[in-house]
Design a protein around this nucleic acid. Structure first.
Length: 565
RNA sequence: UGUCCUGUGGUGUAAUUGGUAACACGUCUGAUUCUGGUUCAGAAGAGUUAAGGUUCGAGACCUUACAGGACAACCA
């Protein structure tokens, strides 16, 4: 009784998997141990959807003092590659997880083979010579039962002989397979004598040319789990129908029985989450690579400036359940904003420069103090140069301001962040009506950004000293998500056709304060209205390059809407 | 005309295991602010797919519908 009360008040609610795990612990199942695994196939890079699974598996092990393995499900050498193995390792590590054991399904090929022999011997597996087409006909359909293969009743000796010869490379690809002998009339298609082994004369990235027969997922996965002593084998919903088969092998082989638990995979609005499609984008050069910042891959997202903390927090917030879901991309963006707001160094940068001359400023350049991060005192401050000629954002000046505009306009006073109050006295236009420069007067007493007479200004704008500024190039990235917006592209065309040609916009001649190289994540007055920036770690250019991340919050649209009212 | 899974505000996840729906994101107000950010305060928004049933009482249990998803690769 007592226990119950404390539990209820102190524990946050459990998701359904945690409930199962806690029940198992309570019942002493598996001696109260928890052992999970993250089992990617090394046939592509990990994406944000995998992050959910990673956080889940490692999180569970963490929470219940258990272990979590990293296992590469490498049973199909045709699709797999060490490049992927390396990237997966790196991404899991970057997310902040350490695996207890690193294994490969291919580590167990000998054992799996031995078990196959065992199944043959007890009459639960047979070699089948049906062609692919024939087999598909014999299998029936979800609504029609299948028919037994003519090879289903071969003798144990013949099966043993044939299987060994398969292994020895006597047959070409596709000639024969080893099948389980289950039930061709089962309403579950996966139970209709599934294939255990197929012949593939292909070298494997780990076992080389040792094998020319390879186990199928269904035959390998559960047994690998069993060998590693996995207690809870967590996978996505589409494997739900495989579970009876998973259990069948374990039972026939009479080995340690892990419990398969399925959960709904992650979907994010406007986001492409299919490995196959992402692979196509990479192969067909729609993007620069798996780590293109528009990609929803872990490495792509990382280049955008996402932090592991933000992603882990996201995984935490979305929860775990069995119903299909589409998470609002705004939640992901909320997570990164929340994290970066605490950590990001703030730096002033001007995207679209407009020259401002402060006519009454004595032409003696000076340095002013600027706070690195208002949210974090320990981030300290820096000196930034100020001078008579500066650049401000073009958008921060309006010749004819609308009512709710409180930045610079003729006759109005604003604060230059960390510097002075300035008042617009006049401006110069060229023959096309384009504003060339703005002339201001400054209030020397407002040095640092406050006036001793206590008067307030409504607007604070950012700036950069013209003679000290460095040139930067800014790339604006649309989210890949926008390439996949069914509302924007309702009919026809594939996700590839829907890729926005403007999804990377390069802006040259941006001006930034000097000494930026020390900061990894940038934002400024202007930038924050749009989103965060991060220095592109992979840039080889001399010029500093900034990636603008997702448009985190489209404040402009809001402001404009308000001004319309 | 099959088997399995799932239906709770716009989105996602909860609801002490049967006691009359909570939290987060988003949206909208307002206040604060040297970032139109942040922060803070508040509001709107579901009566739980439907219809029956059990019960003093159902989002939870039962029945039947309906809707959505998964399954017929020598992929995972």
């Amino acid at each position: 009784m007592e226990e119950k009360t404390t539990n209820a008040s102190s524990k946050p609610t459990l998701n359904f998997i945690e409930e199962i795990v806690e029940m198992d612990i309570k019942n002493g199942k598996n001696a109260g141990k928890v052992h999970t695994r993250f089992p990617p196939e090394p046939n592509g890079y990990l994406h944000i959807g995998h992050a959910k699974s990673i956080c889940l598996n490692f999180g569970l092990a963490d929470k219940y003092n258990g272990k979590c393995n990293l296992r590469f499900d490498d049973t199909n050498p045709i699709k797999e590659d060490v490049e992927y193995v390396d990237s997966i390792r790196e991404d899991v590590k970057w997310l902040g997880f350490n695996w207890d054991g690193e294994y490969y399904a291919s580590d167990y090929f000998d054992q799996l083979y031995a078990w196959a022999l065992q199944l043959i011997k007890i009459g639960k597996a047979y070699v089948c010579d049906l062609t692919q087409e024939e087999m598909s006909t014999y299998r029936g359909s979800p609504t029609k039962p299948g028919t037994d293969s003519p090879y289903r009743n071969r003798s144990v000796e013949e099966n043993l002989d044939l299987f060994e010869r398969m292994k020895n490379g006597e047959f070409a690809d596709g000639i024969r397979v080893l099948r389980a002998r289950v039930d061709m009339a089962s309403p579950n298609m996966h139970m209709r004598d599934p294939i255990l082994y197929r012949i593939l004369h292909t070298d494997h990235h780990r076992t080389g040319s040792k094998w020319c027969i390879y186990p199928m997922y269904d035959y390998a996965h559960g047994q690998c789990d069993s060998i590693e002593g996995i207690t809870h084998s967590i996978c996505t919903l589409e494997f739900e129908v495989h579970r009876p088969l998973y259990d069948w092998f374990i039972k026939e082989l009479n080995i340690h029985a892990p419990q398969q638990i399925e959960f709904a995979r992650l979907n994010i609005s406007f986001t492409l989450m299919s490995k196959r499609k992402l692979l196509e984008l990479v192969n067909e050069k729609y993007v620069s690579g798996w780590d293109d910042p528009r990609m929803p891959t872990i490495c792509g997202i990382r280049r955008r400036g996402y932090t592991p903390e933000a992603i882990r927090n996201f995984a935490d917030l979305i929860g775990v359940a069995k119903r299909d879901n589409v998470i609002d991309v705004a939640l992901l963006e909320h997570c990164i904003r929340e994290d970066l707001n605490k950590k990001a160094m703030r730096v002033m940068t001007v995207l679209n420069p407009l020259k401002v001359v402060i006519d009454n400023y004595p032409d003696i350049p000076e340095e002013l103090d600027a706070i690195n991060n208002p949210e974090d005192e320990s981030a300290g401050s820096r000196k930034i140069p100020f001078s008579k000629v500066i650049y401000i954002e073009r958008d921060d000046f309006m010749e004819v301001p609308s009512k709710k505009y409180f930045r610079l306009a003729p006759g109005t006073e604003v604060r230059l962040r960390y510097a002075y109050f300035v008042k617009c006295e006049s401006f110069v236009k060229d023959e096309n009506g384009e504003i060339l420069e703005v002339h201001c007067s400054y209030d020397a007493a407002s040095r640092g950004g406050n006036s001793p007479d206590g008067r307030k200004v409504k607007g604070t704008i950012h700036w950069v000293s013209a003679e000290h500024a460095i040139d930067v190039e800014v790339r604006l990235f649309e989210r890949l998500f926008n390439a996949y917006n069914p509302e924007e592209y309702p009919e026809g065309g594939s996700y590839k056709d829907n890729l926005n040609p403007d999804s990377i916009k390069v802006i040259n001649n941006c001006k930034a304060e000097p000494g930026l190289k020390d900061v990894s994540v940038l934002s400024s007055f202007q930038f924050e209205r749009l989103g965060y920036f991060c220095a592109d770690q992979d840039s080889t250019k001399d010029k500093m390059v900034f990636n603008r991340t997702v448009s985190l919050k489209d404040s402009w649209a809001k402001i404009e809407k308000k001004e319309e009212k």
